[in-house]
Structure formats: C-alpha cells, structure tokens
C-alpha cells in the first residue's frame, strides 16, 4: 500500500474502480455534488457567508434525523431546519444585544447537539458516522435520485437568479433601489444553501461540508477577476477534487470525505502559492 502510486499504471488506476457498481455511483454523485457545491461556493465566499454555511450545514442535522424517523425524504427535514436555524439567528440577533457571530455559533451548535441527541434516542438505522463524515461509497440508488433532483433544483435557481444574486452580493443597496426584492434573494440563497448542505453531507459529511461550500470559491477567487470565470474555475476545481478524492480513497483505503476535502485544500494551496496575480510567490517577486 505504501507504494501503490508506483505499482499501479495510470490506466488501471482510472479504469479498475469503474468495474464496481458502487464506485461508479460514488464517482457520479461526488462529481455532481462537487459541481453544485462549487457553483454555490462562489456566492458564499463573495457574500462572506462562510460561517453561515458552517452554521446551516450543522443545523440541518436534527432535520435529517427527524425526516428519517418519519419516513420523509431527508432533504425536506434538512430544508426546514436549515432555513429555521437562519430565521432563529436573525431573530435572536435582532432581539438581543449579542453580536452576530456569537449568535450563529450559539444557534448552530444547539441544533447540532439536538441532532446528536436525537440520533441516540430515535430508533433508526441511521449511521451517525455516515451523517458526520459522509459515505459516498455506500450511496444507494434512492440517494442518487435525490441528489439528482436537488442538484437540478439548485442549479436551475442559480442559473435563473445568478445575475441578481451576484448583484445582491456585490451591492444590495443598488439592487433594492432598482426594485429587486433583496429579501426574497436573501432567503432564496439560504434555501439553496440548506439544500446544497444536504447533498454535500452525503459525500463529505456534515462536519466537512462547509469546505465544499467555500474552498472551491476561495481557490477560484485567487485565480481571476471575473465572476463568470470564477464560477467555471470553482466548479472545475471542485469536480476534479471530488473525483480525485474518491479515487485516492479507493486505492489507498482512506476515508473518502477527508480525502476529497484534502485534495481541495491542496488545490487551494497551489493557487495560494502560484496564482498568476494573487499568489504569494508572485507578490514576493514583485517586491524583490
């Protein structure tokens, strides 16, 4: 295992896993989730919603558990709790003197704890480890269907409202002054975030899903000054990370979610060092 990179030729590295049904499924779902998360990550990083992404992805936990217990699709439970947590954050912030980041941390850990307690109390066949750390290699056909449906909805919303959401992130005051309903856009983006958190937790789990929601966007942001290129680069890096992560996980028998996120982090590091305009090595050569 220590020298598997050398012992396997590239063709079989790529082709062998495809002979397994579960691997084909895992690769497809991971690539799709990567694409959706990558697209959304542009809006998250530009809006400055990294903490919000972390909060929502943790807060969907009790929703997933309750939905399982009631036999509903877990996206519905996640959606209700994701949007609910944000509404609660807004309410507590408005009605108390506590600062926003404190409120966010407070609410999402509360929800997450509720989820943990529910998992231990409600009799179900949910594997806590799968929710926390994801299990793309154990994806069922119904998971695939659900991921397809949610991804379709999210991508459609982001395509139709993409320009408006971009304007909302950039200059909400102008958006409002020309009659665009920014309140609607705010909740639309939150809804999309909740839905995406659900698909994301399947591949990398609740704890790491926030990486899927910000790292590709951050990487792309270092590489370009144009929003359209940023979305393309984010989706590209995210999909490549997902596929590569699954392959590495297969061949070296390591945890898949961690593997995907590590590849993402590695790509970010490369951009951080070598990005043509914003990489730190570029900056240094300018100075010297």
């Amino acid at each position: 295992m220590s020298n598997f990179f050398i012992s396997i030729d590239p063709l079989s590295f790529l082709a062998d896993p495809l002979s397994h049904e579960f691997m084909r499924r895992a690769l497809m779902v991971s690539a799709l989730v990567g694409a959706v998360c990558g697209l959304l990550s542009c809006y998250m990083t530009l809006k400055g919603w990294a903490l919000m992404g972390d909060a929502v992805s943790h807060a969907v936990m009790p929703g997933v558990v309750v939905a399982y217990a009631l036999g509903l699709p877990f996206s519905i439970g996640a959606f209700v709790f994701g949007v609910g947590s944000v509404a609660l954050i807004g309410f507590v912030k408005q009605k108390s003197r506590i600062k926003e980041d404190t409120v966010i941390g407070l609410v999402f850990t509360g929800f997450f704890a509720l989820g943990l307690v529910l998992v231990s109390k409600i009799k179900s066949n949910i594997d806590l480890m799968h929710i926390l750390f994801g299990s793309p290699l154990g994806t069922s056909q119904s998971d695939v269907n659900q991921t397809l449906i949610i991804s379709f909805i999210v991508v459609m919303i982001l395509l139709v409202f993409g320009k408006d959401l971009m304007l909302y992130c950039f200059d909400p005051t102008h958006a409002r002054s020309i009659g665009i309903n920014t309140g609607l856009l705010h909740y639309l983006l939150l809804s999309v975030l909740s839905l995406t958190a659900v698909v994301g937790l399947q591949t990398v789990g609740i704890i790491l899903v926030v990486a899927m929601l910000i790292t590709p966007g951050a990487t792309a942001y270092l590489l370009t000054d144009r929003f359209d290129r940023m979305t393309i680069l984010a989706v590209l890096s995210s999909v490549i990370s997902s596929i590569l992560g699954v392959y590495i996980s297969y061949w070296s028998d390591i945890e898949t979610g961690g593997s995907i996120v590590l590849v993402q982090t590695f790509i970010f590091l490369i951009a951080f060092l070598f990005a043509p305009r914003y990489g730190i090595l570029k900056n240094q050569s300018k100075i010297s």
């Binding site: 950039f170 102008h174 144009r226 929003f227």
Partner: peptide, 21 residues
C-alpha cells in the same frame, strides 16, 4: 467605502448593473 472593491467584476459589469431593472 461601502463597496467591496475586490469583488470580481469589471467596470463594464458594474455599469451594466444599472440596467438590470
């Protein structure tokens, strides 16, 4: 000061935003 100047948009994009409505 009220604008995020590192936002990845060009001058052209910003002026086009005036016409979104």
């Amino acid at each position: 000061e009220g604008i995020d100047c590192s936002f990845p948009v060009s001058v052209w994009d910003v002026v086009m935003m005036g016409l979104y409505g």
